[in-house]
Computed example of a mutant assay.
Amino acid sequence: MRLSPFTSLDAFRGELRAWLDDHDLTPPAGHDLDAQVAQLARVRGALWQAGWMRYGWPREVGGLGGTGALRAVLGEEVAARGLAEPGIWSMVEVLVPTLIDYAPPPLAAELVPRLLSGEEQWCQGFSEPGSGSDLASLSTRAAPSGDGEDGWTVSGQKVWTSLAQYAARCVLLARTGGPGHAGISAFLVDMDSPGITVRPLRTMHGVDEFAEVFFDDVQVPASRLLGAPGDGWRLAMDLLPYERSTCFWHRIAHLYSRLDRLLADGCEPDADALGGAWLDLHTVRCRSAATQARLAAGSRLGPETSVDKILLAGAEQRLFDTARDLLPGTVELADGPWRTEYLYSRAATIYGGTAEIQRNIVARRLLDLGKE
């Protein structure tokens, strides 16, 4: 494992590519969700042991230092080679910065390496049946434990929780005070705690990626509070931009690989349609490159990443619309990868904040257009 810093991103990419060429991490056949999660653990484990998974993270949590741009390059190379499903790969980029910023340092030092190394999977308990896009109205409650115990008792329900059935931990938002933002706190909950029930949800593309999670008087130690009581909304606002930064860089690489596959599959030679799909991808890649540069320079991301989300969702849906149009019958009549990915792309304007919510954020917080 190399411990010395790289002189440039190009040097990092070059050595990484050489290592990947020498180590076969190709996914096995029969790539259902169980196999995808197992493959994710396999890839992370190999990259951790070789050191690649540790670059871009601070040494305090087992990293080797360097900027987040190193992680972006790693994710891009993994996605371009199809080594891990990009959606579930991204959970590291969402949850690890949150733990580093809000967990007690000893807790982050103990648990973050388990996620980075593939030893564990984690999930994110935000959305609820009555408060999806309106996160501030969540009703899952955490109350101080009775009988003099030092901790919290959590009761409520979460929904659309990705990979909850595989997760060892959950970054959970719960109400510890009154209504509104100030009454929300965040916790890192062990998913094997008594009182937790997970029920997978089958999506229209045939995968149990999401789940309902029920909390019935679940005991959470005081040491698992992230930040201070009432910091939950601030944590959520810090976390969400990470869903739209480094995560997007490898998602874009994945979509470029699908455009290449569209051409390889002998699609109809429609230059306008193919050019439009390519231009949308190029536009969001340019936008994301600027976001990666700001992140690497130490800037704190904020509402401007909603622009990235809008562009990526539009590019993804246009790409798969183009595939449907230029490969007649492949989506409608064949039960293969194009059908599955086309159906999944319909959610691109919903997950991570709907397109309508993102446009409201741009209007109100970036353009100062007010509430109407």
Rank of each mutant, 00 (worst) to 15 (best):
residue 264 A to R: 15
residue 78 V to G: 05
residue 233 W to G: 14
residue 317 Q to V: 01
residue 339 R to W: 02
residue 236 A to R: 01
residue 263 L to Y: 15
residue 96 V to C: 09
residue 271 A to H: 10
residue 39 Q to L: 05
residue 264 A to Q: 15
residue 245 S to T: 06
residue 319 L to F: 05
residue 89 W to M: 14
residue 53 M to V: 01
residue 38 A to C: 10
residue 210 F to S: 09
residue 318 R to T: 08
residue 340 T to S: 00
residue 176 T to F: 04
residue 369 L to T: 03
residue 289 A to M: 06
residue 71 R to V: 05
residue 36 Q to W: 04
residue 133 S to Y: 03
residue 28 P to G: 03
residue 277 A to S: 12
residue 127 S to C: 05
residue 260 D to E: 08
residue 305 T to H: 04
residue 17 R to H: 01
residue 254 H to P: 03
residue 228 A to M: 14
residue 367 L to H: 04
residue 312 L to C: 06
residue 215 F to A: 09
residue 291 T to Y: 14
residue 333 L to V: 07
residue 50 A to V: 00
residue 24 D to P: 02
residue 303 P to N: 02
residue 281 L to Y: 05
residue 285 R to A: 10
residue 226 L to F: 05
residue 18 A to T: 10
residue 324 R to F: 02
residue 265 D to R: 12
residue 215 F to T: 12
residue 311 L to W: 00
residue 213 V to M: 06
residue 152 W to V: 10
residue 252 I to G: 08
residue 302 G to H: 14
residue 151 G to P: 07
residue 371 K to F: 09
residue 185 S to C: 04
residue 75 G to Q: 09
residue 263 L to I: 11
residue 209 E to D: 03
residue 72 A to M: 01
residue 129 P to F: 02
residue 369 L to Y: 03
residue 101 D to C: 04
residue 192 D to K: 09
residue 2 R to A: 05
residue 280 D to A: 14
residue 179 P to N: 06
residue 243 E to H: 04
residue 235 L to D: 13
residue 50 A to Q: 01
residue 69 A to W: 03
residue 36 Q to E: 11
residue 221 P to S: 11
residue 85 E to N: 05
residue 313 A to W: 00
residue 140 T to V: 09
residue 106 P to C: 06
residue 68 G to S: 10
residue 308 D to P: 08
residue 62 G to V: 05
residue 227 G to A: 05
residue 328 P to C: 11
residue 73 V to A: 10
residue 42 R to A: 11
residue 142 A to I: 14
residue 301 L to K: 09
residue 50 A to H: 04
residue 225 L to C: 12
residue 146 G to P: 04
residue 173 L to M: 14
residue 126 F to A: 04
residue 344 Y to S: 08
residue 1 M to H: 13
residue 246 T to Q: 07
residue 352 G to S: 00
residue 328 P to I: 10
residue 237 M to N: 12
residue 31 H to Y: 13
residue 7 T to A: 15
residue 327 L to P: 08
residue 181 H to N: 13
residue 279 L to R: 15
residue 145 S to E: 14
residue 294 R to H: 11
residue 74 L to K: 01
